[in-house]
């Protein structure tokens, strides 16, 4: 840590050094033994992921092209032997998904939910990080308090929120009543339920973003700001031209992860509203869960849903990374 090398900031996936090094060829590049070592070090992960995720994933691709359900896959249970009777149906499952008007409504809400969640968590996280990056009294205390929501297990927090937002005996309406204000149907009104699930997701996610971005901010060399001030740059200009670009490696990562996590955020919605009222807060993942677990398990339908989600995310991630590359970032 005491080397004089200037490290590139922000860390979640710092790259500038890497890029430089890659061009200059890595320290062990080109040597067979190095490759052997490299593969040996990566092997455990590839093995575990390949077996535990890769296999179900490939199986999922296959199942999504069949009409397999719990009832028609072959199995032997003690005295009962049931032969496999499911068939290959090509793209039928996908056709069915895309021709379902509910899917498109749900997709729209899933995007809205993801964009709102990511914008708010990253935006508010950045705001708080910038406040905490100043010299001020009680900074340590604020930081500790603001990180706390990350410390509570998500299932605990979500249950608490469900309780806080309850119509009759929740704290939120209790306080409104005490203040003589009309109460709000936090989880029962379709629109408010949407607001509430986003609110809770933001509450859960802010701490991680704040910590990551605070790390990024602290790594921005102070000289840059000093130089900018000498040049007479306003606070906004400094933010625009120094803070944001220097934060990019971190912000890029938190945005990417935030998008993936929100898009697939099952517990918050399921534990708060179970997708209700009347499906108003159902996102693609909770719907896939329904196919997979409610009633007769639809292996093929849920696999197809899973594939659609996977493809959407891969496309979104690629577009995002491509747009970053256009701005001169190498990922």
């Amino acid at each position: 840590m005491t080397t004089g090398t200037r490290r590139d900031a922000p860390g979640l996936a710092a790259d500038r050094t890497v890029r430089g090094r890659r061009r200059a060829a890595g320290p062990f590049a080109g040597r067979w033994s190095a490759h052997w070592y490299a593969w040996a070090m990566v092997a455990p992960v590839l093995l575990v992921m390949g077996v535990l995720i890769g296999y179900p994933l490939l199986r999922g691709v296959y199942l999504s092209l069949t009409d397999a359900t719990e009832a028609n896959v072959g199995r032997t249970i003690g005295m009962n032997t049931i032969p496999a009777t499911y068939r290959f149906v090509g793209l039928d499952n996908y056709v069915q998904i895309f021709s379902d008007s509910e899917f498109w409504l749900r997709l729209g809400w899933t995007f809205l939910w993801t964009v709102a969640s990511v914008t708010l968590t990253v935006g508010l996280g950045l705001g708080l990080a910038m406040l905490l990056n100043r010299r001020l009294r009680f900074r340590g205390l604020y930081r500790v308090i603001l990180i706390l929501p990350w410390a509570a297990p998500a299932f605990v927090s979500t249950f608490i929120w469900r309780y806080v937002l309850n119509n009759d005996f929740g704290l939120a309406n209790g306080m409104l009543r005490a203040a003589g204000l009309p109460t709000v149907e936090w989880l029962d009104d379709p629109t408010m339920a949407k607001v509430s699930v986003i609110l809770v997701n933001v509450w859960l996610g802010i701490a991680f973003n704040m910590v990551a971005l605070l790390g990024g901010l602290q790594s921005v060399p102070r000289e840059l700001y000093e130089a900018a001030r000498v040049d007479g740059a306003s606070a906004w200009q400094q933010f625009r031209n120094i803070t944001l670009p220097m934060l990019r490696p971190v912000s890029r990562t938190v945005i990417l992860l935030g998008t993936i996590w929100s898009f697939n955020q099952f517990p918050v919605i399921f534990l708060l509203t179970r997708g209700g009222p009347n499906g108003a807060t159902e996102i693609l993942v909770t719907a896939a869960y329904r196919d997979a677990f409610m009633g007769l398990r639809d292996y093929s339908g849920s696999a197809a849903n899973g594939m659609v989600i996977l493809v959407l995310l891969v496309v979104m991630a690629s577009l995002y990374l491509r747009s970053l590359r256009k701005q001169g970032e190498v990922w």
Partner: peptide
């Protein structure tokens, strides 16, 4: 299929309640 009959009903009932 008895176990699957309630879910759509609850959803629609929620629609009626709202």
């Amino acid at each position: 299929e008895g176990g699957q009959l309630f879910e759509p009903l609850v959803q629609a009932y929620q629609g009626m309640a709202t």
